[in-house]
Amino acid sequence: MFKIKQTRHMFTSRKAPEPLMLVFLFLALVLLLFVAVTLANMVIEQVVTDLPALISAACEKSVIKSISLSMYAGLVATLISLVLGIPAAYILARKDFFAKGFVESVLDIPVVVPHTVAGIALLTIFGANGLIGAPLESYIQFRDAFAGIVIAMLFVSAPFLTNSVREGFQNIDPRLENTARSLGAPMWKAFLFVTLPLAARHIMAGSIMCWARAISEFGAVVIIAYYPMIGPTLVYDRYLSYGLSASRPIAVLLILVTLTIFIAVRLISAGWRIYDKD
């Protein structure tokens, strides 16, 4: 609420605008247009010049399969991130311990590592001869398999969830948890009935970021699992084999599906703001 009011004030104020503000506005506009025009241009050009190709791509079995695989693997990676990330986020938000900064940096490494590098690292450890891959080989395989896709997505996207949830936990006054405890709640109940609901918005936002990051991943996935093809791999594969006009309809489709889900989830979780203290 507060932020909206401020923005409105900025534009309706009778005072002459600050010159610096005008510069900022201009630069922000450049950034906005760079992203929006690039994507909109692709979508519009596809729709205007070659709508039939888009429709036939949408009906093509391998395209549907790849895009759903992206969504599904991203979802699984996000769920695993939730299970592993929420406890880590809670510990980082509440406790001070030796080498905490080091632990935080390690958890953030996937954000800065080039994704092909991450892919090589993952393949080394999860491959048939790897430290983890070898003993598990008779039960589960990662190379060119669904599990490999999920592992690659998990590696690159988990930090986004952990960081967002940690911020959510940090915003919750520990006194609320103390109060719940002294009212008779064991720690797990205090966490379940007080901490988690109050962090709901951050958990949701973190999950969206995590899922979005997972389904947009290409570099790490393509190294550990070229097949089965996820959406981005299919786009790349078609581009290499048949060129721009063959890959673009799939790219457009991928964007449209992703954006639709993204916007839908945001709308659904918008009402959760009431839990926020600020």
């Binding site: 006054d173 103390n178 009212l183 709640a185 064991p186 609901p197």
Partner: peptide, 20 residues
Amino acid sequence: LPPEKRNIGFVYQDYSLFPH
């Protein structure tokens, strides 16, 4: 003993009501 086993009532300065 953990707080939930002490049967002590605690009211903080800011009352710490659960906002949700």
